[in-house]
Design a protein around this nucleic acid. Structure first.
Lengths: 204, 204
DNA sequence: GGCAAGGTAGCACAGTCGTGCTAGAAAAGG
DNA sequence: CCTTTTCTAGCACGACTGTGCTACCTTGCC
């Protein structure tokens, strides 16, 4: 009943992360369609059997890949939120954690885009995506609320509507930064986002 | 040298459109990954051979599907632009032609999203997407320019930057309307977009 | 030492894939 | 009538797919 032996302690979570990052590399290089069990195993330098030990099925693999994208962005965002400094730049930095402004975040965003498209026809992934987008949307609404409360945005704003608009800017920038990187380099992305936040407070 | 017989006149373009719409149905129902030659032929009620007569290869099929999305949106947008009426509502209606506000446009947007994701790893599709996004981006910049010129937007706006921001709102709304339809029904999408245009002119 | 369990490896199966290919049906000019 | 061309049909090939499965290696407790 109780376990008798505890052999080969390999941190399961850590192992799954390593394998999942192999999934990311395959998705980025060859697309979701190419993220087969064999291809991922080859990329990770392991065997099909080992992979299937950690992920019982192919869908589970993609599911975990999506989870990891969300988790990492959220972790970074929370760190940025906890940092000090003036309000507006700090909120900017939190929002920027979801944008592809460096190689790491670019990888995540590309995987996010690929899996978002797949979620259109994969209910399992759709559930994940819904939870994630609800969270980010709620955060955007909160950002607007805080800006209004702190006097950094006009007091007559429709908070829900502006939250929705901010969220659209955010994901629109994410898509564009990933699909048109030469037109929209990281600094330009930051500039557009900063302009948007500033515009919420423009009273003139 | 000159053709001698002209048998079975089937409008090639028309036929290709019909088949391409079968591609759309498959992509919407089962995803790009499932858009195999066999599946599309079955969906179109024809044979693999017939399909391959019109599209020499699988990539050509997807390429044409993407082309058709772009072409249809552009046709509608030009019609909306040619219509009369006051400036701002007219521009709104043109921009709305790229958004999934009814069943037809929803289909196009879903296919667009799926193919945009695939374009990350398919140079052929990437070329198409680049041309299309450059065009829409340029149009967004023009919209801002016209609004400024007509006094419907603040004269001190950075036109390029605002064009970029408008484009982000547009594609962000497209993604959200397709992935979170219950939160973002068509009227809400219109409201957010209208708010954005109005905000460009907010002087208060 | 023995043994149980965690972890790895990879074969086997039945299926799907894209594409090359041949063969026939349909239609119009001679 | 026959010929020519367009269009349709679908078989055949080799490659790749996800997953069930067995066998093996490694580890740590008894």
């Amino acid at each position: 009943m109780l376990e008798k032996a505890v052999p080969r302690i390999v941190d399961a979570d850590q192992r799954r992360r390593e394998l999942t990052e192999a999934v990311w590399r395959v998705i980025r290089r060859d697309g979701v369609a190419a993220a087969s069990v064999r291809a991922v195993a080859r990329e990770a330098g392991t065997s099909m059997g080992a992979l299937r030990h950690w992920f019982g099925t192919q869908d589970e693999l993609l599911h975990f890949a999506m989870t990891l994208v969300m988790e990492r962005a959220r972790t970074r965002a929370e760190a940025a939120a906890a940092a000090g400094g003036p309000l507006v730049p700090r909120l900017l930095r939190v929002l920027e954690e979801t944008l592809p402004l460096d190689e790491e975040r670019r990888a995540e965003t590309e995987v996010w885009l690929a899996l978002t498209a797949r979620a259109l026809v994969d209910p399992q992934l759709a559930g994940l995506r819904d939870r994630s987008s609800a969270e980010l949307h709620a955060f955007c609404v909160d950002v607007v609320r805080v800006l209004v409360a702190e006097g950094a945005a006009r007091p007559d704003l429709d908070v829900d509507l502006e939250g929705e608009r901010l969220y659209a800017v955010l994901d629109g920038l994410a898509v564009h930064a990933v699909t048109r990187p030469s037109v929209l380099p990281p600094d330009r992305v930051r500039e557009v986002l900063a302009t948007h936040l500033a515009a919420l407070g423009a009273t003139r």
